[in-house]
């Protein structure tokens, strides 16, 4: 397949331990994106000879995302693509809790379905996790060769300022606090997510802060983040205020 040669992938050494990687993909109106992200994931897993499954948690998308998901189940098989819809738009945190019930792997990968996170980094996450038995590996846009496509200067300043504020107050020793491309040991994710109450940008940050609270180890892999391939990501005054409130709440409670 020509895709295989389009980038040189990191071959993850197969070892005798049978690991299985479950991707939880929360979707809402992702009819166009879903088949492609699933395809990219499947190619990556097959190429690296990893055992995998994708759990699609669709919040009753009116655009027919679930019809497409069922087509994917037919192509890849119901052992690999598992559709677990919910009745309505119930938010990101609960989508992961919902998806977790159906996970059969011992590792869980969470990522966005809108192409901002590329599956090609997953083998690097896994390699780093194995090398030091990390509890969590998180993608970082802010370190090493990481970066972002599609952000203007204002967006970069807001993002860096927000990250500096949170890092100074919460000191979790993670360079990208609001990143949402992460690999967790299943039991670690289950334990942390049961305590997390924040929403939006603060949700991912609270996951890291809670992880540190329990003394879990966190590794970081630089990732490229391609924003706004389809649609606009919103970052206005309201988001900034909500973010600052969230950081403060974590500062005084965790």
């Amino acid at each position: 397949m020509s895709y295989s040669s389009s980038y040189s992938s990191v071959q993850v050494a197969t070892d005798c331990v049978e690991n299985k990687y479950s991707v939880i993909l929360p979707t809402y109106n992702e009819r166009n994106n879903l088949p492609i992200i699933v395809w990219l994931l499947a190619e990556t897993f097959k190429e690296n000879e990893l055992d995998w499954e994708i759990i699609i948690v669709d919040d009753a998308s009116p655009d027919g995302t679930q019809d497409i998901a069922n087509q994917l189940v037919n192509i890849y098989g119901q052992n690999y693509i598992i559709l677990k819809p919910r009745a309505g738009k119930l938010g990101l945190g609960t989508a992961y809790v919902h998806g977790l019930q159906f996970v059969t792997g011992n590792f869980v990968i969470i990522m966005d379905a809108d192409f901002s996170h590329h599956p090609k980094f997953i083998p690097e996450f896994i390699r780093l996790q194995r090398s030091q038995n990390f509890d969590i590996v998180t993608g970082t846009r802010y370190a090493g060769n990481g970066g972002v496509y599609g952000w203007d200067l204002k967006r970069k300043i807001i993002s860096r300022g927000a990250n500096f504020l949170a890092s100074t107050l919460l000191r979790p020793n993670v360079s990208d606090l609001t990143g949402s491309f992460r690999l967790y040991k299943k039991e670690v994710l289950e334990r942390i997510i049961s305590l997390v109450i924040s929403k939006g940008y603060v949700f991912q940050m609270e996951m890291m802060v809670r992880a540190r609270q329990f003394g879990y180890t966190i590794g970081e892999v630089p990732i490229t983040f391609v924003d706004r391939v389809y649609g606009e990501s919103k970052m206005g005054a309201n988001e900034i205020v909500q973010y600052a409130k969230g950081v403060w709440k974590l500062f005084i409670t965790v």
Partner: peptide, 16 residues
């Protein structure tokens, strides 16, 4: 410093 060092990954976009 970090805004200045923020990498624009144009290549990642075209690859994608």
């Amino acid at each position: 410093y970090h805004v200045y060092r923020f990498r624009d990954c144009e290549d990642a976009y075209h690859e994608l």
